[in-house]
Design a protein around this nucleic acid. Structure first.
Lengths: 340, 340
DNA sequence: GGCTGGCACTCGCACGGACGGAGTGCCAGC
DNA sequence: GCTGGCACTCCGTCCGTGCGAGTGCCAGCC
């Protein structure tokens, strides 16, 4: 029906205006700024319906309307097309990310870039260990019975762990251990590494068996530990801008960002395809994120998801632009990491 | 003179009261809360002198007095004893830091601990590369002409760098390269590593010479780069609390914290002994930190400084307590890292 | 039936004056 | 050199008013 159609246009216009002005938007302003072809009075009727349906609300009687979470949801799902990035922006992404020398650098640049493009808080997850494979394992002796175990994954991620051995070891044993570990684990998916351990221990030369067992255990422990999934956060300064409107909300948000676990959960719950996921306000389970929206997407090739990245900001944000930025950065990061 | 003595007591009382109440403090309140043995009128005279000398100021006529940067400076230098930590706090530090499994973990825990103890923003610098020595170098082949170079320092720090080689290399060459690099660099101070390069290249077997040169160059480049001195930041949520009083200042501060370079400079300018350095307000060169104080100290043993750590907060902070916390954490971190 | 213009109404907000309280500076007396 | 008293200043708060934005409703028009 033409009716419903126009109502949706009105909702779209409200979202757009509210996002750009940060003022509750009234019927008159709407009629002026968008050619909806009808008078303010008609728009008022539509607004009344939209309000009844729960898409918009008024902060107080005789103020303009503001979208609700449900309104933003409808906007994102049906009323907005992902806005393509400008050529200049594409260029900037490329330029910004190209000089990166290692994984740390790539992710650091990505998070800064994303924060800058969207003017929101950006988060980038390190490539998940569980989906990575072992490229190399290195064992370095720290002291008599202390070994430093260094894991290098195929995504370029490097993890370290100190292992306390039951007995002192000599340098020869370390070398043997290194060879054994590498021949057993190199190329193996980390998720499956645990299965390889028993066999490895069994076939190890007797004098090394205890050592191999201890080190493998530490290795698996490090990897299984989900806390080891790291996160880079950037652009928190952008919070200060939005915080002026909602003084109370910034603190819990900062806390959640430092918590890491909370945000990690959000970011990692992404579709492994290239679909951008948007979670709006109350849709975020965690309390601190009520009132905030999360736009996230997985990076890596479809058959080889590596991790997630995204942004966190007020529900009142420019979804089309931000979704485009998030998607573009994820693509580029995925490409970069596929190369290495 | 008993005169001057009492004036200092008045200043101390003003600082203490202002820090704990956050209200400009008046002569009457001072006389009530501290037994200075004189009447408010006398205190007023002292305050007038202190104001003339620039140690305190009034926000507006007929308000109480507030310490100036100069006032805080005098307080820190002469009027406060570093407050020893409670047994419970010592215990907490120990408990908090003990479970750490690697360097990343140690520093992460330290920064959280420090933020929690002081309720301020905490920063911890990674052990400076230039003061570390090479424990091990690892070379892993990524693709035909791409090598991943991994550096492990004696402080447990692990740095990585992708090196693009002029030519393809085979696995045998990689092994030789690894041996060569390790025999040349292991145990060497990183600051002096550059000096070793010419000799290494000269004595390398001819067929490896180009390779060795390229890799060493990348290595040195990575290390010399001062940007490689990393920083862990925590407790930014504490900014939100103080930000209520000074709405405009939080944003530049967050930006500076993300900048890293700025803060790094401050934190690394510490005495290599155990002396806690306090920089108050205007004493901080950087603009964003005007209005903030930095309390920092180096960690590591006196003969082997590793890096710095500290806190950033409003000039109106509890210096004695915070100085004690910073010092205690630094000591403990130093011990932990000395062991590994 | 749906759109439109008009109109009365509601409410939040900004402005401005009055009030009270906290704190000071000064002065005379001890 | 300290103290109590006193007049003065100035900020923060409260309250009443006026204004403007925006709405809901209604009668009329296409």
């Amino acid at each position: 029906m033409a009716h419903d159609e126009r109502r949706l246009q009105v909702l779209r216009a409200i979202v757009q205006d509210y996002v750009s002005t940060n003022d509750p938007v009234g019927s008159k302003a709407l009629a002026e700024r968008h050619d909806l072809g009808v008078s303010p009075a008609t728009i008022r009727n539509d607004m009344a319906v939209l309000e009844e349906q729960g898409y918009i609300t008024q902060p107080h009687t005789s103020a303009g309307r503001v979208p609700t979470d449900k309104g933003y949801r409808l906007f994102v799902d049906r009323l907005s097309a992902v806005k393509p990035l400008s050529a200049a922006e594409r260029k900037a992404i490329e330029k910004f990310l190209d000089g990166a020398v290692d994984l740390h650098d790539v992710l650091g640049r990505s998070v800064r870039l994303l924060a800058q493009l969207t003017r929101q808080v950006a988060v980038v997850q390190y490539p998940t260990l569980s989906r990575s494979a072992v490229r190399h394992l290195e064992v370095v002796q720290v002291a008599g019975s202390r070994l430093l175990l260094v894991l290098i994954t195929d995504t370029g991620r490097v993890e370290q762990r100190v292992v306390e051995c039951p007995v002192d070891v000599d340098s020869e044993a370390v070398a043997e251990l290194r060879t054994l570990l590498n021949s057993a684990f190199t190329g193996a998916k980390l998720a499956e590494a645990a299965n390889l351990v028993p066999d490895l221990v069994d076939t190890a030369p007797p004098h090394l068996r205890a050592l191999v067992a201890a080190v493998s255990a530490a290795l698996i422990e490090t990897l299984v530990e989900p806390g080891e999934d790291r996160l880079v956060v950037g652009g928190t300064a952008n919070l200060a801008r939005t915080a002026l409107d909602f003084p109370g909300t910034v603190r819990p948000l900062l806390e959640a960002l430092e918590e890491q676990v909370v945000v990690l959960k959000l970011i990692s719950e992404v579709d492994t395809g290239g679909t951008v996921v948007v979670r709006i306000g109350e849709e975020n389970a965690h309390e601190a994120l009520t009132g905030a929206s999360v736009v996230s997407v997985g990076y890596g090739s479809p058959d080889r998801a590596l991790g997630g990245l995204g942004i966190v900001g007020p529900t009142r944000m420019d979804y089309p632009t931000n979704m485009a930025a998030v998607r573009a950065v994820a693509r580029y990061v995925g490409q970069l990491l596929a190369e290495s």
